[in-house]
């Protein structure tokens, strides 16, 4: 079954996925709302940046993050001047990398859901006395519920499976930055196929169950919608 290192990697993987998803929901929701509703003509620039991790090799993203977060990079340097330590090869660094890496998987479903709501329900809410913030929470969020569900699960599941970015900026330190996907790699390198099977099978099952739940639930929601 799982070794002590594998369990540590599982724990770090889950912690990373949960924290990343929460952060992404917090910053992704206003970003998606803005992308869905703004009529600014250069908005496509932001859409392209958000979508970049979909096409970029994760190592490219990881490489730039490594430089930025390292002691000589702008962010790592800033951290050092502020009396902290550089973020490369730390769990915080992993979280930052994951947030970028999984961003489109959270922002795009939300943006799609907000766009699908359209202007009308919000106008109705306005004529019924709801302020902009009130309209967002009482109308937009509930109507975008399938989008939130998809965004949460995709963000979570995608972070579970990340490899390249984590390898570049996490450095594969067991108990600190070693996640499951890299643990599998290590086991295969060491020809420990049984271990690799266990972890791979678990990840496969977990990801499948998560995605299956999303699609099943969203089908139920879409039946409820007119």
């Amino acid at each position: 079954m799982f070794t002590e290192y594998d369990l540590a990697a599982l724990w770090i993987t889950l912690k990373l996925a949960v924290i990343t998803t929460l952060i992404l929901l917090l910053i992704g929701t206003p970003l998606a709302w803005w992308l869905a509703r703004s009529r600014w003509r250069y908005k496509f620039l932001f859409e392209a940046v958000v979508a970049l991790p979909l096409v970029l090799p994760p190592t490219v993203l990881g490489f730039y993050l490594l430089i930025a977060l390292g002691p000589h990079g702008p962010i790592g340097g800033l951290m050092e001047t502020l009396g902290g330590s550089p973020l490369a090869f730390t769990f915080t660094g992993l979280v930052i990398g994951s947030v970028f890496y999984s961003m489109p998987f959270v922002v795009q479903p939300l943006q799609g859901a907000f766009t699908a709501i359209g202007e009308r329900p919000l106008e109705v809410a306005a004529t019924l006395g709801a302020s902009p913030i009130d309209r967002f929470f009482s109308v937009a969020v509930p109507l975008a519920r399938p989008g939130f569900l998809t965004a949460t699960v995709l963000g979570f599941a995608h972070t579970l499976g990340e490899f390249g970015v984590v390898l570049m900026i996490g450095g594969n330190i067991p108990g600190v930055t070693q996640v499951l996907s890299i643990a599998i790699y290590d086991h295969v390198e060491a020809l420990e196929y049984t271990q690799a099977h266990w972890i791979s099978g678990s990840l496969l099952l977990l990801s499948f169950l998560l995605l299956m739940s999303v699609y099943a639930l969203n089908r139920r929601f879409s039946v409820v919608k007119p």
Binding site: R120, P121, V124, T127, L128, A130, D134, L143, R145, K225
Partner: peptide, 20 residues
Amino acid sequence: LLPHQRPIGYVFQEPSLFAH
């Protein structure tokens, strides 16, 4: 006054009830 500050009732062409 913003729309939500105007004491009006507005009926749109399509019913536009809140689906949720």
